[in-house]
Amino acid sequence: MEKGERKNVYKVYNKIGRWFAENRYADAVEQAYLNDILKNLPPDAKVLDVGCGDGKPILEYFIKHNIDVLGVDASEQMIGLAKNNFPVTRFLLKDMRKLNLNEKYDVIIAWHSFFHLPADDQPDMFRIFKQHLKPNGILLFTSGTERGEVWGINDGENLFHASLNTTEYQNLLQSNQFEVLKHKVNDPDCGGANVWMAQYKP
Rank of each mutant, 00 (worst) to 15 (best):
Y61H: 12
D27I: 10
D95Q: 10
F141M: 10
L172R: 01
P188N: 13
L164V: 01
A110M: 05
N100F: 13
K94F: 04
M197C: 14
I79R: 05
R127I: 12
Y13L: 14
A26D: 11
L48R: 01
N102S: 09
R90M: 11
P43F: 06
L99V: 03
G80Q: 12
I79T: 02
R97F: 06
A28P: 01
V50Q: 02
N84L: 13
N8Q: 13
N85F: 12
P87M: 15
N194Q: 03
L48I: 04
D120K: 14
D36N: 11
P202M: 11
N194E: 05
L164Q: 01
N84H: 07
T166Y: 00
D121N: 14
D44S: 05
P43I: 00
R90E: 15
A119C: 05
N8H: 10
E2Y: 13
D54Y: 06
I153H: 01
M78V: 08
F86D: 07
D73S: 07
W111G: 01
I109S: 07
P123H: 08
V12K: 12
R6S: 15
W19E: 11
I79H: 06
I67V: 15
R24N: 08
D27F: 09
N66F: 08
Y13P: 15
D121E: 15
P135V: 10
V195T: 03
K56G: 02
K130I: 08
E22Y: 09
H112Y: 12
I79E: 10
F114W: 08
D124Q: 13
E157P: 04
M78W: 06
R18T: 14
Q199C: 14
D124G: 00
S113H: 09
H183E: 00
D95V: 09
D95S: 06
N194F: 03
Y200S: 07
M197V: 13
K94W: 05
Q174K: 14
I63T: 12
G192Y: 01
L38K: 05
R147K: 15
L159V: 14
L133T: 13
V195A: 03
N186G: 01
N171Y: 00
A28M: 04
L181T: 00
E30V: 04
Y33D: 12
K11A: 09
I79K: 04
K98D: 04
Q122D: 06
K182T: 03
E5D: 10
D155Y: 03
F126L: 14
S163M: 04
G191F: 01
D36G: 00
R147C: 09
L172W: 02
N102M: 07
L172E: 00
K130Q: 14
D49P: 06
T167S: 11
G17Q: 14
A74R: 09
P188F: 07
T89P: 07
D120I: 10
E30N: 03
G144T: 10
I63K: 12
P188M: 02
G152Y: 09
